[in-house]
């Protein structure tokens, strides 16, 4: 492993981890692991995300994204480690359940219920239910209250499911592939109404996707899961600012690569393109090299191809 691993300084510590950051921590996982029948879906995941973020959880199929989200939603319990939401352990207590809303991948709703009955369901099962908000959202979306759920289009069902999650008035909204199985128009509409809800309610949102481009505009925090481990966790702007595509003569590439962590390295006979973590403002002294910015997609792809490379925040966590 590379020097990147030095940030994983808590490996030896078994003590509680506390956040030193100014804003409260919304999501906190410490050495989180989950095993299903002998296979580890998640291994040793430690991360901490401040409140008020829209977090993109990205990773290839089978990386453990759903498991990760189910753990935060309290649907499953970890095999090892701990999950906290706003400092409180996740679990089967009404108060803990009330803070987190979850939108499962298939956006399950009771097909035989009318939209109004689904709202009644939300009302009966959530003390903090905001009925006015729910009705207003559905009115704006032109979804008739007396229609059966099974008769709605896929996009409308997704909107009803999202409405129920938002009207619960949670502090954290967890969504597993919210845009999967939606046509492009519905994708756009769901994303837009999600962002409107975020702006109104100061929600912290985690949403997963295996398509990075779905999330680029909406999210300000990126978590990349790969093979059951956290590969990247950081602010999107900071990640983009600290990674550069360096292009220069192939014969000088080894020398350049020795000076900084290189995530991807593609060389032709003459030219080398290195995607490297340069740190903010690292100057390029050599005029034969040019540095250009990278897109989030390029960055994610480069990391996913190098499962041993990690980019985790400089410790905002310490052992107390």
């Amino acid at each position: 492993m590379t020097a990147d691993r030095t940030v994983r300084m808590f490996d030896g510590g078994s003590g509680e981890l506390t956040a030193l950051a100014q804003s409260p921590t919304a999501l906190e996982a410490v050495r989180l692991a989950k095993r299903y029948r002998g296979t580890w879906a998640l291994r040793d995941c430690t991360l901490s995300v401040p409140a008020g973020r829209v977090v993109a959880l990205v990773g290839p199929n089978g990386a453990g994204k759903s498991t990760f989200l189910h753990l935060f939603a309290g649907l499953i319990t970890p095999t090892r480690g701990s999950v906290r939401v706003f400092g409180e352990p996740v679990g089967q207590r009404a108060a803990a359940l009330a803070r987190v809303a979850f939108l499962a991948q298939d956006k399950p709703l009771y097909d035989g219920f009318t939209v109004a009955e689904m709202l009644r369901f939300g009302h009966h099962l959530n003390p903090g239910w905001d009925d006015a908000l729910a009705r207003q959202r559905l009115a704006e979306l032109d979804i008739p209250l007396n229609r059966k759920i099974g008769k709605l289009s896929g996009g409308q069902q997704a909107q009803v499911a999202l409405t129920i999650a938002v009207a619960k008035r949670p502090d954290l909204l967890v969504m597993d592939e919210p845009l999967a199985n939606l046509d492009p128009v519905a994708r756009h509409d769901v994303m837009r109404s999600l962002m409107a809800a975020v702006a109104e309610t100061q929600l912290t949102v985690v949403l997963s996707s295996h398509v990075v481009s779905d999330l680029t505009n909406a999210c300000d925090w990126l978590v990349v899961l790969n093979r059951g481990q956290v590969q990247i966790s950081g602010e999107v702007d900071e990640l983009l600012a600290t990674h550069r595509m360096l292009s220069g003569p192939a014969e000088l590439a080894d020398g350049m690569a020795a000076r900084m962590p290189v995530i991807s390295d593609s060389r032709s006979e003459r030219q080398a393109d290195l995607l490297a973590r340069t740190g903010p403002g690292t100057p390029l002294h050599d005029p034969r090299w040019t540095a250009s910015g990278v897109s989030l997609e390029e960055l994610v792809l480069a990391y996913l191809r190098r499962p041993d490379a990690t980019s985790l925040p400089r410790p905002t966590l310490t052992i107390s």
Partner: peptide, 9 residues
């Protein structure tokens, strides 16, 4: 998954 993530245990 819907019902178990409402505010009722």
């Amino acid at each position: 998954q819907l019902t178990w993530t409402q505010s009722v245990t």
